[in-house]
């Protein structure tokens, strides 16, 4: 009995210490990245290369996700809409949920699973094969050279993907509305345009910038702190996607309050 209690307390303690260390490490990395951005001496070629690669990796997946996310929100609101016989509300309800919450969150989660995980694996492999030490030996700052372009590219890319994704999601919702509930496209479009404000769209976009930064920093942090060879890389990828998911949910909470 006491053995169990003791184990539980030990577990809580070590988990807390581990989380504190990881959060601390990510914050320190964030400051390093910010410092490296002033004055802005960004390696342009590295940035473009990363943007291209990340866009390539994620556009199809994000489009597919957004399409279904839009459709889903419509199906969820469908029973309510049917009950009230209020077809004019469908676009508003689905659009509001998609633009403010579901769109940015789902796109961020997918982005983290595809681009973030890949980034961790890449940096992790470089770390275990001592390539980062190699850069330091050549007096090249790995943060400036490797991390900063990736962080900037991920923030920009997630922002762009969310803009595209929002549109695709609305299309998905409109098609589902027609196919499942039988709502005409014109009714749907009116419902969206009349009831949603540009701020609803911006609300989601502001969030996506913060999500992009947090996904980028967590994935880079877990990449450069890999230990223990190939198995370590797998573990780091796993830890990075989990940490990114938690940080997206937490930041979403604070951003929602802050943005109103």
């Amino acid at each position: 009995m006491f053995g169990f209690v003791e184990r539980a307390i030990t577990q809580v303690g070590t988990t807390t210490v581990r989380i504190a260390r990881e959060v601390g490490g990510i914050v320190v990395l964030a400051f390093d990245v910010l410092r490296a951005l002033f004055p802005p001496t960004l390696d342009g070629r590295e940035l473009v290369k990363n943007l291209y690669k990340m866009g390539n990796q994620s556009v199809p997946i994000v489009a597919l996700t957004a399409f279904f996310a839009g459709g889903l929100m419509l199906v969820q609101s469908a029973p309510f809409v049917e009950k009230l016989q209020a077809h004019a509300l469908a676009g508003w309800a689905a659009g509001y949920a998609v633009l403010r919450e579901i769109g940015p969150i789902l796109i961020a989660l997918m982005f983290s699973g595809r681009v973030g995980a890949n980034n961790t694996a890449e940096l992790g492999t470089m770390t275990v094969t001592e390539q980062l030490d190699g850069l330091r030996a050549l007096a090249i700052d790995p943060i400036r050279y490797l991390i900063v372009p990736r962080v900037v590219a991920m923030v920009v890319m997630l922002l762009a993907l969310t803009v595209i994704g929002d549109l695709v999601a609305l299309v998905g919702a409109a098609i589902t509305a027609k196919a499942v509930v039988g709502i005409e496209f014109s009714t749907f479009i009116h419902s969206v345009v009349d009831n949603l404000k540009p701020y609803d769209f911006l609300h989601g976009i502001y969030k996506s910038m913060v999500f992009g930064a947090s996904i980028a920093l967590t994935s880079c942090y877990f990449g450069v702190t890999v230990r223990g060879g190939a198995v370590g890389v797998g573990r780091a990828v796993n830890a990075a996607v989990v940490a990114a998911a938690v940080s997206v949910m937490l930041l979403d909470f604070f951003m929602t309050y802050w943005l109103g």
Binding site: I61, L64, T65, L109, M110, G113, R114, A117, N118, A121, G124, T125, V128, G229, A230, V231, V233, G234, V237, N238, V241
Partner: peptide
């Protein structure tokens, strides 16, 4: 392959199961 193969499998699993 080796560690890259495991990395690929992990990423593919996250995306595949989320989708």
């Amino acid at each position: 392959g080796s560690s890259e193969g495991v990395g690929w499998a992990t990423t593919a699993a996250v995306i595949g199961s989320s989708l």
